[in-house]
Design a protein around this nucleic acid. Structure first.
Lengths: 215, 215
DNA sequence: CCCCCTCTGTGATAATAGTCACTGCCAGGT
DNA sequence: ACCTGGCAGTGACTATTATCACAGAGGGGG
């Protein structure tokens, strides 16, 4: 691998120790992923641990009728916790992961990421921290579905989206409805209400967020 | 610890290697938990990994208004994944765990369960397997909330309950409503419908399950 | 045996969310 | 400039779930 890549990785994963970095550079591959491409599919066998170097991935669940709902986003420096848990045996993925933007992922062969747990303290800590972080995010998602109405869930969704990709949300109402497992009309109406409070402004294929906290 | 306990542990955790077993016996404590007692509370600092030796625990989430919903049950031989993830730093619990029946838990000091990851292969595998299993169960719970109506969620709930404690479900409608974050009247009506199909029979404080698959 | 408390059943009504039908609108391609 | 397809707005209606109000049933304690 190139010098440039070493620096890229170091920048996104500053907590990794030097020899681990060398091991990553020596044995893993970097893959370019196009916008909209599926990085992981439900039922797929997992043979690599996935680290995100650049871009944005969304991790979601899909049922048999094609409904989906968003679990959480992965940002550069994050790892797909699911891909780590499946390392031990050849396990199947329980989730879908799709590139929201063009992205670069590091693919580490499962047997190595497994070995490194014992070999590198920083890797071990990273894996545990990833588990925990994802578990927590999942619990938040669960809370919002279990305890909140759709209006609050939409707010939660928008806030999260702002956090990962800024105040200009380039999504159609239909796409938002899909990720919340709701319907377009309902989302449109709720967005309109938000617009009336001044929290957002609506445009075609794009929502401008002003202030979501005031609501 | 007594010889009896060694055998008890061995029976519930047959996958543990001999030296690990010795370490557990030497350094952990066994605690008796009464029915209804809270083993873990949201916000509590976690200093031990919790293994379940006997009895049944329910793990659930609680919001600020006191609503709750069931995440999953823990049976003998299971571990509380949350208590394992929090070992590294002094982290706070994100969940509630309560004894459904009288139970015995093994408490392993966090720093030891942490060390054992590197020291004992069987422990490491157990921890990873626990993470994975709980994550999967959580995803199932999430699916049922996100994609299913209350009728199917109730069925899912009953099936799960049958799996862990048999076909005589000794719960009031109120308790079920609480765990599904619904209301008593609604649950009563849905149960009545199930009774009419012959899937269950209703009694006071107790539901007799005949066949939940036919529905 | 009776009292009382909890559990259960039920109708009426309200609130939330999903569906249907249709309209106008904007943007890109030709 | 015009067509066309996807996007957004809206009213009417339905379905599901929650809430309220109340009545009866059952069981344990005194």
């Amino acid at each position: 691998m190139e010098i440039q890549q070493r620096e890229d990785i170091l920048k996104k994963f500053p907590q990794f120790e030097q020899p681990l970095l060398d091991d990553i550079l020596a044995h893993s591959t970097i893959r370019q992923v196009e916008e909209g491409e599926e990085v992981m599919r439900t039922g797929q066998y997992i043979r690599s641990t996935v680290l995100l170097l650049s871009g944005l991935l969304k991790v979601y669940r899909e049922d048999d009728e094609g409904n989906e709902f968003l679990m959480y986003y992965l940002e550069p420096g994050n790892a797909c916790a699911m891909s780590m848990m499946c390392t031990a045996r050849d396990e199947q993925s329980q989730i879908m992961a799709k590139a929201v933007t063009e992205a670069e992922v590091i693919l580490i062969p499962s047997h190595l990421s497994e070995q490194w747990l014992a070999k590198y303290k920083s890797w071990h800590n990273f894996v545990i921290a990833s588990y925990r972080q994802r578990f927590e995010e999942l619990l938040q998602t669960l809370d919002s579905i279990a305890f909140k109405g759709l209006d609050e869930r939409l707010l939660f969704y928008l806030k999260r989206h702002v956090k990962v990709s800024g105040k200009e949300i380039r999504l159609s109402h239909q796409q938002i409805a899909l990720e919340l497992n709701s319907s377009r009309e309902v989302i449109s109406r709720l967005l309109k209400k938000l617009e009336q409070t001044g929290a957002i402004a609506l445009h075609r294929n794009y929502i401008e967020v002003h202030d979501l906290e005031v609501v």
